[in-house]
Deep mutational scan, measured.
Amino acid sequence: LRGKKKEELLKQLDDLKVELSQLRVAKVTGGAASKLSKIRVVRKSIARVLTVINQ
């Protein structure tokens, strides 16, 4: 992550946020259990990207 440019990080952040919103919709509509663990992974990925951006 640290080797990427800021523009790439921001694009990745947008993609992750879109994916997270889709997973939340799937959870509300009764999605599979595998998607519940994926939510945690995506949230941590967002946190990692934000950490690198803010450093």
Rank of each mutant, 00 (worst) to 15 (best):
D15N: 12
E7N: 06
Q12G: 09
K27G: 04
L20I: 08
L50I: 13
E19G: 14
E8S: 14
E8F: 11
R43K: 10
R48W: 07
K17D: 04
Q22P: 05
K38W: 05
L20Q: 03
V25P: 07
Q12F: 15
K35T: 10
S21L: 10
L10G: 03
G3E: 09
R43C: 11
L16K: 05
K11L: 01
A26S: 11
I39H: 01
Q22N: 11
V41D: 13
I39P: 00
Q55H: 06
K6L: 13
E8C: 10
R48K: 11
I39E: 01
K38E: 04
D14F: 12
S45N: 07
L9S: 03
K44H: 05
D14I: 14
I46Y: 00
Q22L: 10
A47I: 04
L16T: 04
L50C: 12
T29W: 14
A47Y: 04
A32Y: 07
I39D: 00
E8P: 05
Q55T: 08
N54A: 06
A33N: 04
R2D: 06
T51Y: 09
L50W: 12
V28S: 06
I39C: 08
A47S: 12
K17N: 02
K5F: 14
K38V: 04
V25C: 10
K5G: 07
V25L: 11
G30T: 12
G30E: 10
G3S: 12
E8R: 15
K27F: 03
L16R: 03
R2V: 14
K5M: 15
Q22E: 06
A33R: 11
L1M: 11
G30L: 14
R40P: 02
K38C: 03
R2P: 03
K35D: 01
K11R: 05
Q22M: 09
S45R: 09
R40A: 09
K35M: 13
V41K: 06
G30C: 13
A26F: 12
L20G: 06
I46F: 12
V28I: 13
K4V: 08
K4N: 06
V25W: 14
V52T: 10
V28D: 06
R40L: 12
L20Y: 02
S45V: 09
K27N: 07
Q12I: 13
K17C: 02
T51D: 10
K6R: 06
K35E: 02
G30F: 14
L23I: 04
K38A: 05
T29I: 15
L23V: 03
G3R: 08
R48A: 04
D14E: 06
V52Q: 10
V41F: 10
V41S: 10
V25H: 03
S34F: 10
K17P: 02
S34V: 07
S21R: 08
L9A: 04
L1I: 00
K4C: 11
E19N: 13
L13Y: 02
K44Y: 01
S45Q: 10
I46N: 00
S34Q: 10
R48Y: 01
L36N: 02
K27P: 02
T51P: 00
K35L: 15
T51R: 12
S21V: 05
V41T: 08
D15V: 11
I53G: 00
S34H: 11
E7L: 14
I53R: 00
L50A: 07
A26L: 10
